Amino acid sequence: MGMSKLDEVGDRESWRCWLCDEPVDPNMSVNDPRGPSVDGIFATKKGKGGPERLAHRACNTKKGAVAPVVPWPDSLFVIDPAPIIGTVERLTRKPGRVAVARCPSQADAEDASAWLLDRLSRLAPELAFETSIESGGGGFLLVLRR
């Protein structure tokens, strides 16, 4: 018998949940909240099937029929952060630039930029993103481009 879809998706995703970015144990029961599940994230949108992604059962269930949320970590100093999934979807449809957060200092913006690019490398590995930091308005604007 060949590899299951779960094993295939899990191996491709390096056994990390695409929603919370935490490891997924491939040996845990699929019925356990921390167990593995396959999320057909964009599969129902206008008949266009997006890639299936690996998620913890609880992350997948919690998301349900609502748009998934990838949180910005509390350790970053970001003001008015843009929703990451919505921003990625928008830049996927139409490449360009989107301001994703304001930061009080250049160092905060650099930390947020490094985290965001690292997170997007796993969230949307097929897309190439870059960031820039623009000074203005007493702070620093983090801009994402594709």
Rank of each mutant, 00 (worst) to 15 (best):
P83T: 01
L144V: 07
G50K: 02
G86D: 15
R146S: 15
E110L: 15
V143P: 12
I79R: 13
V98F: 01
R146Q: 12
A128F: 01
L117C: 07
R93A: 12
K46M: 07
D21A: 14
T131A: 13
R93T: 09
A109N: 04
L54P: 13
T44Y: 08
P23K: 06
E8G: 02
G86C: 01
E89G: 01
D74F: 03
T92P: 00
A99G: 14
A58Y: 11
T87F: 03
A124E: 13
T44R: 12
S75M: 08
G96E: 10
W18S: 08
L127C: 02
P51M: 11
D21C: 06
L6G: 05
N31I: 00
L123C: 08
E52S: 15
M3P: 00
V143M: 15
M1R: 13
D32M: 07
A128P: 00
A65K: 09
D80A: 15
D21T: 05
T92I: 07
A55K: 02
E110D: 13
A107R: 13
S37I: 05
C20W: 10
P26N: 03
I85D: 07
E110V: 12
P51A: 15
R119I: 00
S14Y: 05
G136Q: 03
Q106L: 15
L54A: 14
E130V: 11
V38G: 09
L120P: 06
N31F: 09
A43Y: 05
A101L: 06
R97A: 15
P81K: 04
R53D: 08
V9Y: 02
D108W: 02
A124F: 04
I41F: 11
K48C: 04
G96T: 08
C103E: 08
L120E: 06
R57Y: 11
V78C: 09
T87W: 05
K48H: 12
R102D: 09
A112D: 04
R57E: 09
G136R: 05
R97H: 11
P68N: 13
A55S: 14
K5R: 14
G47A: 07
C17A: 05
L19Y: 02
M28W: 00
E8Q: 15
V88N: 01
W18I: 14
R53I: 11
P51H: 10
R122W: 05
V24G: 09
C103P: 00
A112Q: 06
D32C: 09
L54Q: 12
V100Y: 05
